[in-house]
């Protein structure tokens, strides 16, 4: 599973907006043509992207192996023919060329995921989508990432409870209904609490940091801080004549 890893590579230092833009542009370019020379160029560019993020291509393959497996079936499905000769090469090749465009696109998005923290994407969304829609999408992205593991564990707990009570013997529609209803119930309870929490924290369209002003007691405290910071200098100045005589 690919996830963000802190690092100092070229890709890490880029702004998420430019990376998103590159990703989208790359996908468009990858699907623009299926000629071999074009494909070679696309693969070369994807290799550069992997290099820029110092991401091992083997990790991409490991992360997306199910996807690649299903993709490999594409040409097989395309080639199957009803009746002799049972398998036609030409449609299979057409499909193979279409499928071959996918791995570089996945590799480039893997580099993005590997080098961009979620809060970077969130900030990019807020800046790219104008107005209130952008703000809701930005804040929402952060919140969904926060709630996703909780809701997964809710669902797993429901499923375990169901199995513990002999639910595995119930028909699948019954199990699905119970899982869905319980899941939505818990999600709704969480959303009620989230709404209260957002309101309690003055969820605003124009959030501002509290204005900072220095009070009377701030000056001496800050003064002591400065003195403490300069103390090593004073100490060495006091010691230097002693050192000189020694």
């Amino acid at each position: 599973m690919l996830s963000y890893r802190p690092g100092e590579t070229f890709a890490h230092r880029l702004d998420p907006r430019s990376k998103l833009c590159f990703q989208a542009g790359f996908a468009v370019a990858a699907f623009a043509d299926t000629s071999l020379s074009w494909l070679a160029g696309v693969y070369a560019l994807a290799a550069l992207a992997l290099l820029a993020g110092r991401l091992d291509p083997r990790r991409v393959v490991r992360a997306y192996w199910v996807v690649f497996l299903v993709l490999a079936l594409g040409p097989v499905i395309a080639g199957i023919a009803v009746g002799p000769p049972w398998f036609r090469v030409e449609p299979a090749l057409t499909s193979l060329r279409a499928v071959a465009r996918v791995p570089p696109v996945l590799a480039v998005s893997a580099v993005y995921v590997h080098t961009t923290p979620v809060r970077g994407t969130r900030a990019a969304i807020e800046r790219l989508v104008p107005g209130r829609a952008g703000q809701l999408l930005g804040v929402g992205t952060g919140l969904v990432v926060r709630f996703f593991p909780l809701v997964v564990s809710d669902l797993r707990r429901i499923r375990t409870a169901m199995v513990a009570r002999g639910g595995a013997n119930r028909p699948v529609t019954d199990r699905a209904r119970r899982l869905a209803v319980q899941g939505i119930d818990r999600a709704m309870a969480r959303s009620d609490r989230l709404a209260v929490a957002l309101r309690a924290r003055c969820f605003a369209w124009n959030p501002t940091l509290p204005a900072l002003t220095f009070g009377r007691m701030d000056y001496p405290v800050a003064g002591i801080g400065v003195v403490l910071a300069l103390s090593p200098l004073a100490q060495s100045a006091a010691l230097s004549p002693l050192l000189a005589t020694a």
């Binding site: 809701l136 929402g140 919140l143 969904v144 709630f147 996703f148 909780l150 809701v151 997964v152 809710d154 669902l155 899941g183 939505i184 999600a187 709704m188 969480r190 959303s191 009620d192 989230l194 709404a195 957002l198």
Partner: peptide, 13 residues
């Protein structure tokens, strides 16, 4: 908005 957030998380789950 809060419901949308939780339904997005539920879809993911």
């Amino acid at each position: 908005f809060a419901t949308a957030v939780l339904l997005a998380a539920l879809t993911a789950a």
